Simulated assay, not measured.
Amino acid sequence: MRTDPSRRRQQTYLAGHRAERFALIWLALRGYRILARRYQVHGGEIDLVVRRGATVAFVEVKARPTRDEALQVLTEAKRRRIERAAAVWLSRNPWASASVLRGDAVVIASRRLPLHIEAAFELRIG
């Protein structure tokens, strides 16, 4: 039996929202303040922008059956899209330019607690 592509897309979209909410709660419990969620600009998107102390992190959330599968989808192209969106976000929030900027990831795998990876990818902004 084949799954309707539009239904599958909707299920994937909703699963992504659930994963982002889970990651948001996980980070908030660890002292991060949420600055933005699903920040989109032409050519890029950031799942979460968070701050703790002097650090502003642009966070990519990935949910897959295993942590390894989730880490494999953090590609160079994805990093560039995050960088484009981060550059726009920083231009609209100039106070953050003085912060330590970081590209983090939160990996969500079945039956596991989220894994927050600080500095999971390099940000080349500027």
Results as ranks from 00 to 15, higher is better:
2 R>Y: 02
2 R>C: 00
2 R>Q: 08
2 R>P: 02
4 D>K: 10
4 D>T: 02
6 S>Y: 05
6 S>V: 05
7 R>W: 10
7 R>I: 06
8 R>M: 14
9 R>H: 01
10 Q>Y: 11
10 Q>A: 06
11 Q>E: 12
12 T>V: 09
14 L>E: 08
14 L>S: 08
15 A>D: 10
16 G>I: 01
16 G>R: 02
16 G>M: 01
17 H>E: 08
18 R>L: 07
20 E>Q: 06
21 R>T: 11
21 R>G: 09
24 L>T: 12
26 W>K: 12
29 L>Y: 04
31 G>A: 04
31 G>I: 09
33 R>D: 12
33 R>W: 05
33 R>M: 11
34 I>D: 14
35 L>S: 10
35 L>G: 02
36 A>S: 07
36 A>D: 04
37 R>S: 07
38 R>V: 00
39 Y>C: 00
39 Y>S: 00
40 Q>M: 00
40 Q>P: 01
42 H>P: 03
43 G>H: 03
45 E>C: 05
46 I>C: 03
47 D>H: 05
47 D>Q: 07
48 L>R: 12
50 V>S: 07
50 V>E: 11
51 R>S: 10
51 R>P: 11
51 R>T: 03
53 G>E: 12
53 G>P: 08
53 G>N: 12
54 A>S: 08
55 T>D: 04
56 V>T: 06
56 V>Y: 09
57 A>N: 07
59 V>N: 03
60 E>A: 10
60 E>G: 03
60 E>L: 14
61 V>W: 02
63 A>Y: 11
63 A>I: 06
64 R>W: 08
64 R>N: 13
65 P>M: 06
67 R>Q: 12
68 D>S: 13
69 E>V: 06
70 A>I: 06
70 A>C: 04
71 L>V: 11
71 L>T: 10
72 Q>Y: 05
74 L>Y: 08
74 L>D: 05
74 L>C: 14
74 L>H: 13
77 A>Y: 10
77 A>W: 04
77 A>H: 09
78 K>E: 12
78 K>N: 15
79 R>D: 02
79 R>K: 11
82 I>C: 01
83 E>A: 00
83 E>D: 04
83 E>W: 07
84 R>L: 01
87 A>Y: 09
88 V>T: 01
88 V>N: 01
90 L>V: 02
91 S>A: 06
93 N>L: 08
93 N>D: 00
94 P>Q: 15
95 W>V: 14
95 W>G: 13
96 A>M: 14
97 S>L: 15
98 A>P: 06
99 S>K: 09
100 V>N: 10
101 L>G: 03
102 R>M: 12
102 R>Y: 10
103 G>K: 02
104 D>F: 05
106 V>N: 08
106 V>D: 10
106 V>H: 06
108 I>M: 06
108 I>A: 07
109 A>Y: 07
111 R>D: 15
112 R>L: 14
112 R>A: 15
113 L>M: 14
114 P>S: 15
116 H>K: 10
117 I>H: 13
118 E>F: 14
119 A>N: 15
120 A>P: 04
121 F>Q: 01
122 E>M: 13
125 I>R: 02
126 G>T: 00
126 G>R: 02
